[in-house]
Structures are given as structure tokens and as C-alpha cells.
Design a protein around this nucleic acid. Structure first.
Lengths: 259, 259
DNA sequence: TGATCAACGAGAGCACCGCTCTCGATCCGC
DNA sequence: GCGGATCGAGAGCGGTGCTCTCGTTGATCA
């Protein structure tokens, strides 16, 4: 379904290589189209025209328009995740609050530079479509970066808005977060820290729950703020979008106890 | 452009009434279609078929599909705003934190009950399109409810994430917020309070800025959380979506100093 | 009351879309 | 070397938004 058929040996048959090449050509043209007209107006026939093929021939490579969109989705998720990881990595020597701000800025910058791709990733899903499981991996890269940073925070006492039901509600999310390597990021370095499984200090999970909800809500805040800006919901209210977004980043970092 | 031509006298000419009736019929069929197949798949021809007209006849009433979608947009914004206002009004006797939670729940409930309409309001727009000025009024009803509630909060000192540039960045938003009536809502009561223009207590606007950013970010948080849920970004992470959303509501209320 | 003109519904048509099917040409593996 | 899989091209189907024309009907004005 995806272009992953080009994976194995260095030189398969000529036909295999031609197939991989044409698949890449289709994807490149589709990416250009996506950036230009957006996901809704992306036309498989126009892609075929662009690369000098007839529309039916493209179906030899992508069984449907949705499959093509899925590949574009994965690519875009990967690009955005890479941008976030790069920003976090570049700021690795600075205080975690500064790294948080840098990452937020990078995500916003990517969104502003690629509004149509952002719409594909986070806009309304096209009717029948959505989320073959190929997409979940790249989709989690941004939140993974944020979660790793949020571990550097110092939240004080367990807040009052966490109760037993909240702890249960985010159990899976906490599990996922625990499994993300402490460093991770672009450099695949550092060893595991198995002692992270030692008993928490007589905690019932409330504190971890608070951090988890905070970081997921913070991501929702950044996403919502960026989407509001992109979709024009802030015109007339916010006079300086850069400064406003920075303030929201600083606010979320502060709420997470990042300094 | 919209169906506002039915406004003035009680009984215009027969033709006028027929026009208003058919316009309403088109809009009703379009609303049903929207709820069923979503904005992307909404077909003007299908609407025409549904009401027993030929497609070209519909163009006598709506010059294009986008104009029809705009009317649906306004309608949906109005419904959502009404739901939020009603919830806030029903909880008027309770503490403001409870009213905040009730309002958030109402917005989420509306979104879950009308996912396609939510996608129309807050999903990916085609960048060429957007926001004839008819839409801005109804679109601000939800945030207006939230802003009015946020006035009941007790934020402590001015947070560190506000600086002079932040104050300037949200100047227009603060101006708008000041102009929303203290009560407002569904009951059009209460008189103006011109003394709100008296000098703030030696404040440079930092505190008001903090509240403004907080409430706008809180709305972005609720919006982002609902969109994440609707678009499937939380599956596998959040086990109890109701409880998670409640926690996010309580958290934002707490961050706004609402009790 | 009768004529005029605008508004209206119907139909045909255009360009485009996603997608399917068939049919030669081409390449690969046995 | 040959049979079968793969490919590109073309025609075609049903759908879309939208335009244009053409009778009809209703409102308006003389």
C-alpha cells in the first residue's frame, strides 16, 4: 500500500527499480500538489498529468486516492516530528523551559510553512478515510518529544483536579509515556533506565497522572492555538501572533513546572 | 447571500414567501445531508434531488455550494453558541468552576452529537475560503461565554510569562473582552458599566493580559482536546474520554483561578 | 384590465473527478 | 525461448459544480 516495497536489497530487478522510481515520482508530484491546493482538491488525475501518465496508470501504484493521501499523511507526520525533534535537540543544552519554547516555535513554524499539510494531519478527516495503523508511529513523535521534556518539570503537590477516575482514565497514556526513552530524540543514544520501574514514593499515580494530563492538554493547547491562527479565528483579536504564541508556550511550560 | 431576505414585513408578496420557503427547504435538506455525510461530501445536486428540484434551480437561491456551506456554518455556530450559553445559564446558581465544567461539557456534547458540523466549524478549511463577515458574530459566542466566566476568577500575582510584548499582543482581545457585558448570555439583561473605563489600580495591563491569554488558551485547549477525540488522536492513549475531558476542564478552571 | 419584465424551473451541456475494464506491449523467470 | 505477470494507454461509467438557454409564471405598471 505504501512505497515500502523499495526496502530490501540494493539492486532488485530493473522493473522493481523502475517501480520504485515512478512511485517516488508520483509521491513527489502529489506532495507538490498538496502544498499548492490542499488535500481536498488534490486530484489523482492532475498528478498523473503532471508526470506525463494517464490517470489509470497511476492506479498500478496506488489503488486509490486515499492510499496516496495516506502516504502523504505519513510523510507529513514524519516531517513535523523531525522538525520538533530537531528543535529540541538543537536546544538540548538550554534549560528545559527554553527547549519547550523552541519546540513549540518549531511546530508552529512548520504549520505556518505547510498549512495544507497541517490541515491534512489535523483537519477534519476526509469522509470515509482515517488512520491505517501505518500512521500512528510518525504521528506520536511530537507528543513524544513533549512528554520527554515534561519529565524535567517540577510539579508541586498533586492538584485538586485529579481524582481516582482521572488516574484510571489516562492509564494507557501513562504506560506509553513510561516506555518512551528518557533521551530518545534524533540521537539514538543513552541506555535504558530500568530503575524507573522502582516503586514510586507511596504514590497512587496521582502525580504521574497530573503530569500526563498536563502535557497532553498542553499539546492540545499548542495545536488549538496554531489551528486557530491558521484558520483565521484570531484575526481581530490577537495583534501580534508571534508574541501571543510565545506567551502561550511560556505559560504551558510554567504550568508543567518547567524552568 | 444568506436567507436574511425573509426579514422585514410579516407578509410580503407570495413570491417572496415562496422564495423564503424554498430557501428554508434547501437549507433544511442541506443540514440533514451535512449531518449524514459531512461537509466534504455535501452535494448540491443531492440536495436538489432531495427536495425534488433540478440542480440548476438551486442556483436561483444559492449562487454556489460555498454560499450554502456558509449558511450551514452560521447555523452551526449559532447552535453551538446557544448550547454553551444555555449550559452556562442553567448552572448560573452554582460556583463558577462548576459553570465552567458544565459549559465545557456542553460544548463537547454538542461536538460529539454533531461531528460533521464540528468538522465544518473547526476542521480544515480550504484556505481560499473562510469567513464572510456574517460568520464572525455567531463564532464568538462560545469564547464570549468563557470570557465572562473567567472574570469570576482570582488569579494571584502577574505570572512571569507575561511581558510588555505580551500585553501589546493581546490588546485587541482585551478590548473586545471588556465590551462583552458582565452578564450577557441568553438573558439580555443588565446595564452597561461605563465606569469600567476608570483607571485600573496602577496596573499596566499585565494582570488583564494574563487572564486574557489564559482564557483564550483554555478555549484552545478545550477545542484541541475535543478535536483530538473526534478525529481519533486519543484512541489507545485515553481509556475514559469522559473523565479525561472533565479533568481537563477542572484543570483549566483551576488555572484560571475559578472556584 | 392588459401588457411588460423579472423571476423561476427544467433541461442540456461543459469540464472535471475517482475508478473500472480491456487491450496491446513489455519485461521476468522458468 | 516461451508463458505469464506487469505495465501504459484508452474508453467509458457515474458522479460533481456550474453555465446557458428556453418556456412559463407571477408581479407591476399603465
Amino acid at each position: 500500500m505504501t512505497a515500502a516495497s523499495a526496502a530490501p536489497g540494493p539492486a532488485r530487478s530493473a522493473r522493481e527499480r523502475a517501480r520504485a522510481e515512478i512511485t517516488a515520482e508520483i509521491l513527489a508530484s502529489a506532495r507538490a500538489q498538496l502544498a499548492e491546493v490542499g488535500p481536498a482538491a488534490l486530484s489523482l488525475r492532475a498528478v498523473a498529468r503532471d508526470i506525463g501518465m494517464v490517470s489509470s496508470a497511476v492506479y498500478r501504484y496506488y489503488p486509490s486516492r486515499d492510499d496516496l493521501l495516506t502516504d502523504l499523511l505519513v510523510t507529513a507526520f514524519d516531517e513535523l516530528g523531525q522538525a520538533a525533534e530537531d528543535a529540541a535537540h538543537r536546544a538540548r543544552a538550554r534549560p528545559v523551559a527554553a527547549r519547550w519554547l523552541a519546540t513549540g516555535r518549531a511546530v508552529r513554524a512548520w504549520a505556518l510553512a505547510h498549512p495544507h499539510e497541517w490541515a491534512l494531519l489535523y483537519g477534519s478527516p476526509v469522509p470515509g478515510y482515517r488512520a491505517p495503523r501505518t500512521t500512528v508511529g510518525p504521528a506520536t513523535r511530537v507528543i513524544a518529544v513533549l512528554v520527554r521534556m515534561a519529565r524535567g518539570g517540577a510539579l508541586d503537590a498533586t492538584p485538586a483536579w485529579v481524582d481516582r477516575r482521572t488516574v484510571r482514565a489516562v492509564a494507557s497514556a501513562r504506560e506509553h509515556a513510561r516506555n518512551w526513552r528518557p533521551d530518545g530524540g534524533t540521537t539514538g543514544s543513552s541506555s535504558d533506565r530500568p530503575e524507573s520501574t522502582t516503586a514510586e514514593p507511596a504514590d497512587d499515580g496521582s502525580h504521574e497522572t497530573a503530569v500526563t494530563v498536563r502535557v497532553m492538554a498542553a499539546w492540545a493547547t499548542l495545536f488549538g492555538t496554531i489551528s486557530f491562527e491558521l484558520f483565521g479565528h484570531l484575526v481581530g483579536s490577537i495583534d501580534d501572533l508571534d508574541q501571543y504564541f510565545d506567551a502561550v508556550c511560556r505559560m504551558t511550560a510554567s504550568d508543567l513546572g518547567l524552568t
